[in-house]
């Protein structure tokens, strides 16, 4: 579903991501972890087609993101850490707008259950200015899910959510994965990754340190100890520093 080969991103002389290759299949949830400045957000943005990769190829649902971006983007959804909404569109109008952009016929029938699932149906006629941070996040998610994406990218999905919101977000991600979506999420919250992700990719200074299922990566860094959690694995893998 997601195939990344030799991905690199440079800003002038600075290399944010170097020679990254991995695949994420249907039903898999890949957690991107790494210290600050490891290249997680740059990687996610390259995968979602927001910024052009300097080198390498990204294929989404079999479509090359560089040569056929429109077909590739039809199947994906990107959820930024900070919800980006239009100030003058109500909740329902956001969904109406997104439906037209993605060509979703009969979107009303899809939008209502989505709003109810995310518990913002009673805010359908409110502008973003009247919504709490968590509700804005839910609206951004509803917009992303409306066209039924098969590939999803989440950048720090739990930022600003209350405990109940965190629980629901985790359930929602797992539900989409069970339904066959390929998901990549980046977060500093390692317990989230432990609960949600089937695979993990540890980055440091733009390069891959470790990748595989959580059990595989744990086995590599556990040094024979039992029940080593992801936090300990992360610290051992990254050497306990950003540099």
């Amino acid at each position: 579903m997601i195939e990344v080969t030799g991905l690199a991103k440079r800003y002038g002389d600075f290399t944010a991501v170097r020679d990254l290759s991995f695949t994420v299949g249907p039903g898999e949830v890949l957690g991107l972890v790494g210290p600050n400045g490891a290249g997680k957000t740059s990687t996610l943005r390259c995968l979602a087609g927001i910024i052009p990769a300097t080198a390498g190829t990204v294929r989404i649902g079999g479509n090359d993101l560089a040569t056929d971006p429109v077909a590739a983007k039809r199947t994906l959804a990107f959820f930024p850490d900070e919800p980006r909404l239009f100030d003058y569109l109500t909740v329902r109008q956001h969904l109406n707008f997104v439906a037209r952009v993605y060509g979703v016929a009969h979107h009303e029938a899809l939008a209502q259950p989505l709003l109810e699932e995310l518990e913002i149906a009673d805010k359908a006629d409110e502008l973003p200015g009247a919504l709490s941070r968590g509700m804005k996040q839910k609206l951004a998610i509803a917009c992303g899910l409306l066209h039924g994406p098969k590939v999803m990218f989440f950048d720090e999905p739990l930022t600003g959510l209350d405990p109940l919101g965190i629980r629901r977000m985790k359930d929602s991600i797992l539900k989409r994965a069970r339904d066959g979506a390929a998901i990549v999420l980046s977060s500093h919250l390692l317990h989230l990754l432990e609960e949600v992700c089937s695979h993990v990719l540890i980055l440091k200074k733009g390069g891959k340190i470790a990748a595989g299922t959580i059990a595989e990566v744990a086995a590599r860094f556990s040094q024979g100890e039992a029940d080593v959690n992801l936090e300990e694995i992360f610290i051992r893998a990254t050497g306990g520093s950003e540099n």
């Binding site: 239009f86 109008q93 707008f97 037209r100 502008l127």
Partner: peptide
């Protein structure tokens, strides 16, 4: 403090996507 208001015209889910930006 602005309040939401009805769209300027009916915007079906299918059709030229450019019009969605005009509507928005």
């Amino acid at each position: 403090a602005a309040k939401g208001r009805p769209g300027p015209f009916l915007l079906p889910g299918t059709g030229r996507p450019e019009l969605a930006f005009l509507w928005k």
